[in-house]
Design a protein around this nucleic acid. Structure first.
Lengths: 208, 208
DNA sequence: TACACTGCTGACCAATCAGTCAGTAAGAGA
DNA sequence: TCTCTTACTGACTGATTGGTCAGCAGTGTA
């Protein structure tokens, strides 16, 4: 009459465990997250967790992959879309992406990368290859496309796409650190984008 | 004939220990830094360290204070100096400060704040009160001063001094994370400052 | 030189936690 | 319904490390 103590759900366990691990890492950071707590949140024993993930570090990597990869691919695919002009693209999808980032799981991943990156060089490499470098490259392409079709002026900004996303990084960090301080990151990003577009649209000196 | 096993140097110990702790925290982060290692680097036993600092956390706070406070005061005092125009000030001291930051001990502190901040709320508060809010306020003052004397146009940028320093934060983080990837942060910051000044100097629309 | 004060040492303790494994029971297959 | 595979449990272990403290030895004083 007692219900079974557990159910066998081989298929679902890994995803449930990485989800629980994401929550736990988000709250505690890697070093302070207890494997036991991850297991408890996943409704599973510690032993089972170790059946699916060989070590805590393996688990960590699985979390990063599960959160980051689906998102990145979605965004980068949009850059391929040439139906929008670069200006419209920046005011549209880029702005939208930037505004939702500070509250998204990716922000948590960024924090974890900062926090734990130095101890997991292969993870940083993975992140660089799959996220950071691809994102910067996409922005650079976008800027160059605008310059090529005369929509943007020649500018060194095209060499530093970092400047486009710097305010988002700033906003993410600001929120992580000074949670009690409010920051209207949407307005911040709007202001930033207007400054950027103004710069990109300006005539070079000496032109009419 | 054997030299004394140690010397009594009550006065110097605290500074030597915080210096050793800074190095250790910089390399390992807080959680992974061993108190024993700090003591060894300071040429001191673990017991002595605990004589001067009650806990590892106290030590951590002392490190932050010792690195951050002297630097902040120096910089902020310059903003009081009204002999330079806001434009010259941004092109001069502000730019210089921004360019040297990524390689300075303050960058390490920023990393530590990010890494450990959530577990030391009182430290974050200290940092906010003494560093971040004062720095942002100084920038805001500078921008408003330029607007007031007609050197800068009216702009929402004055509400978001964060945008001025965002690229530095970006550069610091980029270096911390992707050490192998080179980033010409001086050029990045130069580009950023030119974009900013261009924006600040531009006539509002509708003006001659 | 003797003495006392205290800066300093390092062996030790207690707590924490990643990872293990012997055993249990769900539930598929016959 | 019985059997056998294996998903699953949770008590346990070994290693690590923050923090303690009894005593040792420099150093100033008389």
């Amino acid at each position: 009459m007692t219900p079974p103590r557990y159910q066998r759900r081989k298929e679902d366990r890994p995803a449930e465990i990485t989800a629980a691990a994401f929550e736990t890492f988000a709250e505690k950071g890697y070093a302070n997250a207890r494997v036991e707590e991850v297991a408890r949140r996943a409704g599973v024993s510690k032993g089972l967790l170790y059946l699916y993930f060989k070590t805590k570090e393996e688990l960590f990597k699985a979390v990063i992959r599960s959160v980051v990869l689906p998102r990145v691919d979605g965004l980068l695919r949009q850059v391929e879309d040439r139906s929008k002009s670069p200006t419209a693209f920046i005011r549209g999808p880029v702005r939208e992406f930037m505004q939702q980032l500070p509250g998204s799981p990716v922000a948590v991943i960024i924090k974890l990368m900062l926090t734990e990156g130095s101890r997991h060089p292969d993870l940083v490499e993975f992140y660089w290859d799959n996220v950071a470098s691809r994102g910067l490259e996409a922005l650079r392409t976008l800027l160059k496309r605008g310059i090529a079709n005369g929509e943007f002026r020649e500018t060194r900004l095209a060499e530093f796409p970092h400047l486009v996303i710097a305010p988002v990084v700033m906003a993410v960090i600001f929120r992580l650190l000074f949670q009690q301080q409010t920051l209207d990151s949407d307005a911040l990003i709007d202001t930033h984008i207007e400054i950027l577009l103004e710069h990109l649209a300006a005539e070079p000196e000496g032109s009419p």
